[in-house]
Design a protein around this nucleic acid. Sequence first.
DNA 1: GTTCCCATGTAACTGGTTACATGATTCT
DNA 2: AGAATCATGTAACCAGTTACATGGGAAC
Lengths: 188, 188
Amino acid sequence: MALEHAILVSLLEQPGSGYELARRFERSIGYFWTATHQQIYRVLKRMEGDGLLQVREVAQQGRPDKKEYSVAVPGRAALSRWLHEPVEPESIRHELAVKIRGAAFDDPAALISEVERHRKAHSARLEHYLAGEQRDFAGPGAPRPPDTRRELQHVVLRGGIAYERMTIAWLDDVLSTLHRLRAASAGT
Amino acid sequence: MALEHAILVSLLEQPGSGYELARRFERSIGYFWTATHQQIYRVLKRMEGDGLLQVREVAQQGRPDKKEYSVAVPGRAALSRWLHEPVEPESIRHELAVKIRGAAFDDPAALISEVERHRKAHSARLEHYLAGEQRDFAGPGAPRPPDTRRELQHVVLRGGIAYERMTIAWLDDVLSTLHRLRAASAGT
DNA sequence: GTTCCCATGTAACTGGTTACATGATTCT
DNA sequence: AGAATCATGTAACCAGTTACATGGGAAC
């Protein structure tokens, strides 16, 4: 049910169409929750049916009309209820880790390029996050008034940054392990 | 399809029954891929039908009979094929992050106990991983011969440890942010 | 006698992915 | 002329979760 809640949060931050939501799920909110447009349209329809959202047809010039969704009162209540409920600390699913353990039954050295590819992808994501932090949260020397929404967005982004940094360091560990194993097997 | 591959890896490491696999998915392999017994039984049946696995009925004393699965030749080939295919660097799904951003539209201070609960769970997991590392990979002073499987299991475990440490540090960051916001709002 | 562990499953449902489909407009 | 962007959707399928079900043996 977390997609519903992610949509509620995103629409509270800014009302928008299914298409716009799909774009946000490619950045911003998508850094910690993903969804495709097909899924979003389906859920939006259901949520509207449940009275959690309101729709407004918006005519546009030079572009197709769109349906702008916004959070209705019961939607806000549903989000609030969810926020007060505990969620389970989630377990990770890391396909690459499965591969690494599986490599023991194949050629570990063959994994090197795959791991390097992942490292590159995570480096790119880190750069992207850091650029976003620079852009949106660059600290002006003067203390600004505390802005709750901004602070919370920032702490979530810092989480993404920490995750990418940790992952990159771990992938380096994996790479040196793979190189070491290759050297050892070549020497035998 | 990653569950299939995780099962192949686990059964290559050690053949076993559906029940035993379910237990392994609560520890060891379960640290980076989860599955319930229902799902496992379903997938085992399919994989057996596809010729990836072999079954052997094992009578036991004082316990119900079990079906011991092991990897057949086509199963090993399927794993090898998968290992040579690229997988997409995965995006995280972090429900707590959705909550944190959502808290801007509710009472952020109400999240404190939830975040503390998560911190506790991650600390416990970290302790558990460290104990496992101590037990299985405690470095004897003498250099042992390189053991590929062991090394790969260890590097994956180090990944789990790094993940938990990073998460705990981030949750501390979240907590201090929430406390700061509460203090600021109390002062206004 | 009640609870926990071993062991296997079915059924219904929910959530997520992939493929297909349409059509206007803007940019190169 | 062709590709990219805006905008919305359907259908089929696959993966994962939750609930229900059974039954023997061991431990307390």
